[in-house]
Design a protein around this nucleic acid. Structure first.
Length: 209
DNA sequence: CGTCCGATGAACT
DNA sequence: GTTCATCGGACGT
């Protein structure tokens, strides 16, 4: 699909956006950015409203904790700007933005988006009849709505014809609109379960509680 | 090879 | 509040 002809909203984030070693700051910077899906020749998009930062080697909640390199975690060690997508509970495809330089296993989990373009397509993929927050208000829900699966693990997010793209349409987030708290579902990680690395856009209908 | 279990979601009571 | 679908990864044997 030709991304130019589609007149996608905003500007593609350049590779330099992803190079910072401060994954916690990048998790905040990604709030408000647009994620575009061009899967199966169809276009849809949404605005990122909830993220979490994961940072190997020290972060015990990170799959690459202690710099564990396996077939699954290999993608996290690549240079920033690629997708790390893995299967959770055998059902859900969870999407992360890999950040930082090569061999630093840092990533931002996108937990929720606000739907923007082609909502009928998202409803169809989710087997829903009408717009409701549970269309895209969870990490396994929004990926289903956008047609994202592990088949796209490792793709570059910054090329103009990529099936998943991150874009900046000028939307800005004020400091007092950014909610901060501990990450979800990582109780096994001891002290690392408590670090405030989860970020949400305040007052948005698609964020989790 | 066997077992355990997860960065979840949906359908229950 | 609870249960469970469903499967690849991780790890021990």
């Amino acid at each position: 699909m030709n991304a130019q002809r589609l007149n996608l909203r905003g500007d593609l984030l350049p590779p330099s956006f992803y190079t910072s070693e401060d994954v916690v700051q990048l998790a905040q910077a990604l709030i408000g950015k647009v994620i575009v899906s061009l899967v199966d020749g169809k276009y849809c998009s949404g605005r990122i409203v909830e993220t979490e930062a994961y940072r190997a080697p020290e972060d015990k909640a990170c799959h690459a904790w202690n710099n564990r390199r396996t077939h699954r975690t290999a993608t996290m060690f690549e240079a920033g700007g690629v997708a790390y997508i893995y299967l959770c509970y055998g059902i859900h495809h969870l999407f992360n933005v890999v950040t930082g330089p090569k061999d630093k296993a840092h990533a931002v989990l996108v937990r929720a988006i606000e739907p923007l373009d082609n909502i009928p397509l998202m409803l169809q993929r989710r087997n829903m009849r009408s717009l409701h927050p549970n269309l895209t208000n969870g990490p396994g829900k929004w990926t289903q709505a956008l047609g994202i699966t592990t088949a796209l693990n490792g793709i570059k997010l910054y090329t103009p014809d990529a099936p998943i793209q991150l874009r900046d349409d000028g939307y800005t987030v004020a400091k007092d609109e950014l909610l901060t708290g501990p990450r979800i579902g990582v109780d096994y990680a001891g002290e690392w379960a408590k670090v405030p690395w989860r970020f949400r856009l305040a007052q948005n209908a698609y964020i989790g509680p």
